[in-house]
Design a protein around this nucleic acid. Structure first.
Lengths: 111, 111
DNA sequence: TACCAGTAGATAGTAACACTGAATAGTGGC
DNA sequence: GCCACTATTCAGTGTTACTATCTACTGGTA
């Protein structure tokens, strides 16, 4: 998908991951695989882990270490109350942006 | 609007400005004022100018210096063919992202 | 046994982008 | 002569995602 989506993901990827965690608890490897599956083909492995560390440090998620049948133990993340608030705020910001862009797009088609 | 929109604008602000220029030619001060008017209250002056320099260097816009009745001459930017292609690409990337986010949002509401 | 693929996470260094703050420069009004 | 408004430029900073690499555990296979 190239460089353009990379820049656009800055600020949105965090919201995407929090939205995933709002549905169910998940661990890094799982989230990365899910994103790949949804078409975010060029999200690097390390990116999600770094993001999870950030949101953990900011206290938006709770973490639980769960042993895996295959491979090292998983760090399972779940959204806490603060994270839920942050996600709400994210959706508000996203809506603001999406509305204005949609308006710009339709205006552009007219001219 | 705070820090969240700042990060989200990375990658999209360029598209927004190109979309504006697709409608009509404009200069930096004008674009900044327009954005402020549309609710992007915390976009700094310098930000738009820096962005315009970038897109000019990448050859997406044509520039014409126009004397102003009040103040120093304006640099009027207009979208060229390459810029139009880039804008199309931007809309494709944006759609990709917007679709997936919209899906995530509605899924989240179900659970 | 040795090696490799798959699973799972961590980390150091880099690039891109928007922000902050200040400087520069021109015009007109008080 | 100074201030407000218009208009652009630029140096320095912070955040974020990428690249590349390393660690570590399991199971299969040559």
């Amino acid at each position: 998908m190239g460089k353009q989506v990379t820049e656009m993901l800055k600020g949105t990827l965090e919201g995407i991951v929090l939205a995933i965690l709002a549905g169910r608890a998940a661990y890094g490897y799982e989230i990365t695989a899910w994103l790949r599956d949804k078409g975010f083909t060029d999200i690097a492995e390390g990116t999600v882990y770094a993001l999870l560390v950030r949101v953990e440090q900011r206290g938006l998620v709770d973490v639980e270490k769960v042993p895996s049948e295959k491979g090292p133990p998983r760090k399972v993340y779940s959204l806490n109350t603060q994270g839920r608030d942050h996600l709400d705020e994210f959706w508000r910001t996203w809506s603001f942006l999406a509305e204005r862009l949609e308006q710009l797009r339709t205006e552009g088609k007219q001219s």
